[in-house]
Design a protein around this nucleic acid. Structure first.
Length: 204
DNA sequence: GATAAGATGTTA
DNA sequence: AACATCTTATCA
């Protein structure tokens, strides 16, 4: 289980953090804090599961067979500055939250797959996985109220409705790297990361 | 426990 | 027609 990190000084993640290889960013986001200010009360969540999607990845929305292929409207957000939010609708009923990585105009991002609440923790421990509402990319957006309205937010600014800060520092043996979930194209890429033994990670 | 199917609408 | 998902139903 991740620590809350309340004893640490947390600093906001800057564009430099996201302007790096996407797989590195996905790994390093584990343990960091998502701060979200959609309603009146600011809420914080620890990132416990991520996936990387790059410009060379057939599963990425920004994937183009040839560099001359046109950029589609949905994927256009993926080409914005590192640290920008990208939200899309999946299966007609769920939203998924990503943060843009690498340099502007590259087209890569990290998908947020699961979060651990800091401010409203479940009483003691969740009694079962069914009671967790932030373990899965569609579920967490529903729980946090994230929709396509929250596209193209600069998440590197403390006055944004969403931004990211440093959190608990994880030791290498707490970070599990494995294959991605829920996709058919390039599902064998080992670009999913999660915190070992954390009860808020999706799946079993 | 496992596996199957349905909901739903944007995208290319 | 496919889809970076989740819930519910049914079988064991």
């Amino acid at each position: 289980m991740a620590k809350t990190g309340k004893d640490n000084k947390q600093s906001i993640l800057t564009p430099d953090f996201f302007n790096r290889p996407t797989v590195e960013v996905a790994k390093n986001l584990l343990g960091c804090t998502l701060v979200i200010n959609l309603s009146k009360n600011k809420q914080r969540y620890i990132i416990v599961e991520t996936e990387a999607y790059t410009q060379d990845d057939p599963a990425c929305h920004a994937y183009r067979k040839s560099p001359t292929d046109k950029i589609t409207p949905r994927a256009s957000h993926l080409y914005k500055a590192p640290g920008t939010s990208y939200v899309y609708l999946i299966y007609g009923m769920y939203h998924c939250l990503n943060v843009v990585t690498e340099a502007e105009n590259i087209g890569a991002a990290v998908l947020f797959r699961a979060l651990e609440p800091i401010d409203k923790p479940s009483p003691s421990m969740p009694t079962s996985k069914k009671s967790i509402t932030t373990n899965g990319p569609g579920k967490l957006c529903k729980a946090l109220g994230i929709t396509r309205e929250h596209n193209a937010i600069d998440m590197t600014r403390p006055d944004s409705t969403m931004y990211l800060t440093t959190g608990s520092v994880l030791s290498p043996d707490q970070i599990i790297q494995t294959t991605r979930i829920g996709i058919s194209k390039a599902a064998d890429y080992p670009w999913r990361f999660y915190i070992k033994d954390n009860p808020y990670v999706s799946k079993k």
